[in-house]
Design a protein around this nucleic acid. Structure first.
Length: 274
DNA sequence: CCCATGTCCTGCCAGC
DNA sequence: TGCTGGCAGGACATGG
């Protein structure tokens, strides 16, 4: 489940091996993951294009390439974007192969196939991929306590659902959302409009902290996630509540509880998140 | 605009 | 032991 810290780590590991390279060969093994354009156009447009820059927006990976085009990736739940030598056997569910000058290969694999990629001229391809409707980038200066207060105000939905809404904040997923609410001491079911100014300030700080810690640790590898070099992250060793139902809360020792919010497993401590 | 629900997909695991 | 049903969840489509 690549969330912001995992996508950021993939970006950082791909950058030195991919930026500046020219795409020489393209193979689409599963056309369903290429959302736009047609797989035939995808294969004919990409060769000879140089990869100028690799960036990130929310959970999306953005490759700026020659000719004002961009290749946009969303890894869904189980998508893996890795660089390897062509000689290494393909892992199961490999859907796209890009061979670069210099011989390295970028591989996209995704067992559950929730991930997608898009290729096209900027900015049209960004609109197509839904990037223009993304909310604020939580690690940018534009993300302020006042801005967060505005996002939470006037909504009857619970705070966890608002935090997970990519049109409000871009990049938080289930893991970092639970961790941020724990860090801030806020119950996930609190109606978002009832948070006090002090709670919003704590939540703002907590969101920044859990995302930065996640990046520091190279992401969270519970099952599928690996970075562009095929390495696992280690942030799973630092999770306070996510996936720890029944285990003691690291702060008060009480049991971590689990409930379902918006269809997602939700982990929290009743005592610390009153 | 706001919100709830259904849908996609496969690997894994509890339970029989 | 081997099968099966349910669960995991990011984002969007749909409908109220």
């Amino acid at each position: 489940m690549p969330e912001l810290p995992e996508v950021e780590t993939i970006k950082r590991t791909l950058k030195p091996k991919v930026e500046g390279r020219v795409i020489e060969g393209v193979e689409v093994l599963n056309p369903a993951v290429v959302c736009s354009p047609s797989p035939e156009e995808f294969c004919s447009l990409l060769p000879e294009k140089r990869i100028l820059d690799i960036g990130r927006r929310g959970k999306y990976l953005l490759w700026q390439v020659d000719g004002g085009h961009a290749l946009v990736w969303h890894l869904g739940m189980t998508g893996r974007l890795t660089v390897s030598s062509p000689g290494v056997p393909l892992e199961p569910h490999t859907h796209v192969l890009l061979t670069l000058d210099g011989g390295l290969q970028v591989r996209y694999a995704d067992p559950r196939r929730f991930g997608r990629c898009y290729l096209g001229p900027v900015p049209g391809v960004f609109t197509l991929a839904g990037l223009d409707r993304l909310g604020v980038e939580p690690l940018s200066p534009e993300f302020t306590p006042e801005g967060l207060k505005g996002l939470l105000a006037g909504r009857r939905r619970c705070v966890k659902e608002v935090l997970l809404d990519q049109h409000c904040l871009a990049g938080l997923g289930n893991i970092y959302c639970d961790e941020a609410l724990f860090e801030a001491g806020i119950h996930p079911l609190r109606p978002s409009c009832t948070l006090t100014v002090g709670e919003v300030a704590r939540l703002h700080r907590a969101i920044r902290k859990v995302l930065e810690d996640g990046i520091c640790h190279g992401g969270t590898s519970i099952r599928d996630y690996i970075d562009g070099d095929g390495k696992r992250g280690c942030h799973q060793e630092y999770l306070a509540v996510y996936g720890r139902a029944g285990q003691p809360c690291p702060r008060c020792g009480g049991p971590v509880e689990r409930l379902v919010v918006g269809g997602r497993g939700t982990h929290f401590c009743r005592r610390c998140q009153g």
